[in-house]
């Protein structure tokens, strides 16, 4: 699981970006001021996120947790929600508590103290909604908690410029667009796979 584009860094290109985009992307590098989530909740989000995105880099997890905080703290809507499912702020905060209660019940240990495989086991059972008798939460609500966190974490992770570089994504493109868009050719500033000489 290694990047095919080592050495490529979209941030090196930021002088080519419009100021608004540059500001938005650089904010993802921190520092972050949380508005809603407690330090424990932040730690829980990071612990869960690490499994969802399969990446444990603290700087990135910090951004991911901050994005979750920002989305839950904002006053406006969440586009859609299933009937009977609590609003996202309540859903996520209660979900984190439930996850911890569960960890204590099944493994006699706080979630944050569990080893990775046990954490993953609990997260997966949330995805299945399989613990409803223990939690007082309907199967559907558990699944919705999992999906809500998964959506927020995934969109944050794939918005981090380090991740863009690793997957070989050219990143922001304004005012400069692309000239060579056809198969096998690339603009000079795009990521190139190691060992290939495409586009030259």
């Amino acid at each position: 699981m290694e990047s095919m584009y080592p050495g490529y860094n979209v941030l090196d290109l930021q002088d080519e970006w419009d100021p608004h985009t540059r500001e938005i992307v650089n904010r993802r590098l921190g520092p972050f001021t949380f508005k809603l989530l407690s330090p424990w909740e932040q730690a829980m989000i990071k612990a869960v996120a690490e499994h969802l995105i399969c990446d444990g880099r603290e700087e990135i997890l910090e951004w991911v947790a901050f994005h979750v905080d920002e989305q839950l703290a904002k006053p406006f809507g969440e586009a859609q929600r299933k009937p009977g499912v609590p609003p996202q702020k309540e859903l996520v905060r209660r979900g984190l508590k439930t996850l911890d209660l569960w960890a204590k019940k099944h493994f006699s240990e706080a979630f944050l103290k569990l080893d990775a495989s046990r954490q993953l086991q609990l997260i997966s059972s949330f995805q299945q909604g399989s613990f409803h008798k223990d939690t007082g939460w309907e199967t559907d609500v558990q699944k919705e908690f999992f999906k809500k966190v998964l959506g927020l974490v995934t969109e944050a992770y794939y918005s981090h410029p380090w991740v863009w570089s690793e997957i070989g994504y050219g990143g922001p493109a304004y005012p400069r667009g692309y000239v060579r868009i056809e198969l096998g050719i690339t603009d000079p500033w795009e990521p190139r796979r190691v060992g290939t000489n495409e586009g030259s």
């Binding site: 419009d18 985009t21 586009a79 929600r81």
Partner: peptide, 17 residues
């Protein structure tokens, strides 16, 4: 902006059931 996350603001995000 040239950014997917930012573009969420262009949508109607009011909660619907």
């Amino acid at each position: 902006a040239s950014d997917e996350l930012h573009a969420k603001t262009l949508a109607w995000n009011d909660t619907r059931l």
